[in-house]
Design a protein around this nucleic acid. Sequence first.
DNA 1: GCCGTTTTCGGCCCGACTGTTTTCAGTCG
Length: 575
Amino acid sequence: MKNRELASIFEQMADLLEILGQDPFRINSYRKVARIVGDLTEDIEGLWKQGRVGELPGVGKNTAGRIDEYCKTGRITAHQELLKQVPAGLPELLDISGLGPKTIAKVWRQLEVTSLDELQQVIDDGRLAELPGLGQKKAKQIARGIVFRQKTAGRTPLGIALPIAEDLAEQLSRIAGVSRVEIAGSARRRCETIGDVDLLVQAGQGKKVIEAFTKFDGISEVLAAGTTKASVLLKEGFQVDVRVVSKKSFGAALAYFTGSKAHNVAVRGIAVDKKLKLNEYGLFKGERRIAGADESGIYSKLGLDFVVPEIREDRGEIQAAQNGTLPNLLEISDIRGDLHMHTTASDGTTTIEELAQAAKDMGYEYIAVTEHSGSSAIAHGLNAERLLEQIEKVRQADIRIKGIKILASAEVDILADGSLDYPPKVLDKLDLVTASIHSGLAGSAQKVTFRLLKAMESPYVDIIGHPTGRLLGQREAMDLDMAQIIATAAERQIALELNSHWVRLDLKDVHLRMAKEHGVKIALCTDAHSVEDLQNIRYGIWTARRGWLQASDVLNAKTAEELVEWVNARREARK
DNA sequence: GCCGTTTTCGGCCCGACTGTTTTCAGTCG
């Protein structure tokens, strides 16, 4: 699937045009195409073969021609031409906070800067500060932007940012005069990584709130502080923006700052169609505010069902909200068990008993204990003999501990050739089998896809664990042919895992949606290595919701009886 | 660039803050 690659070409064309100072609206249209193509669950080449590229929103005659050229030749002439006009090192400079296209063009034309290194040089020798329209402060701001980008690569995992955001929100709510605090932005949409944290405060006296906020512990630098907003850098290395708004505008501001930008633009378009004006202060008919205190009022006045933050991405939710066909998304209460966890028998830090008790306290009906298999030596994986002992321990625990069903399972390694790390007669003794790749993740697309497909041929595999193997900010996802993996999972009735640890979130939202559309069941599991890890399920729930999943799409939303039935049906088919 | 029309041109979101100016450009969200 070439969707990502094509999207990045359009994205880069937009960057190049921006540096060249072209029409901003034209640039915006390129960015829109990049986003549409990147989010597409269908293969763009498939769409092209059917001659349906022109049906995509935002794709006109010109863009359709370019996609046509790309599908035929693998490149776009206009893109190549643009690359010749701008030094290769410039587009990445757009990622530096405080540095925009105008300034990049200026340092390029006037100081002959063509790379990040050369930019650093003209900052250090003072030439950047001497450019007309710039100065000492601006130069320092850009220098900070460079450091920040190098330190954090720009994004922070939700699992790190959200607890900090929740703590800041709590502190803000204790400031005198503050009546309400909400986390907005991508953290509220529960995106897997957060660029910066947006906090919205309802209060009369903005200035006092800003003054108190900028004195909080944990702030390493105040970037901006006015009467209604402040931006600070935390010691953890990411930015927090606080905005103070009045009660009558709170809902409008919350919607506005929750985004996504694409969702907001589309909603605003609906307002315009109705001869209304929507901004961060409210929904207006002429001068009169007709909604704004709460989000639901705005959606309802626009003839839309309320759209939960997790799916505000302009991926079809607005049309669904108009038609009354928004899905009834998965809730944490729908989850009846966790099917992936480790004990001290392999690399966990806890026991079967402790996990079972904690799961019971969470209201679960069942758990599956899944140790690593022998080839994961570093994780003290179990060879066949030790696995049989572990199965016996699980059976005993299941008898001893009342009120929860404990399934004997395993996270069996998928080896380099796609075979499984236990022989069939051992696998046959397990209630449930998850198979995962733990090594050789950097292999070619062809190789890693082959390994997974091969493993899925086994009649013993019920679930594929953390299918892409990514670790946010640490390790790239495997270069899988996801369309083929999903098609095979659908055909063979194999569930795919949504590993809910916040560093994995694997599968991710768009792949979950793709799987759902093909009728593939998702196993929403924590891969817990401790009792606390079981709580990571909340990250999985949010990601599942971002993928439009409903309870009916989730394997472990089934009752214990239904789950056993599902497994047995697969066992029958195996014979 | 796309889109949609009271259809072939004109609009496409726009307000806050900073820094460099001295009324505004650039950046950001």
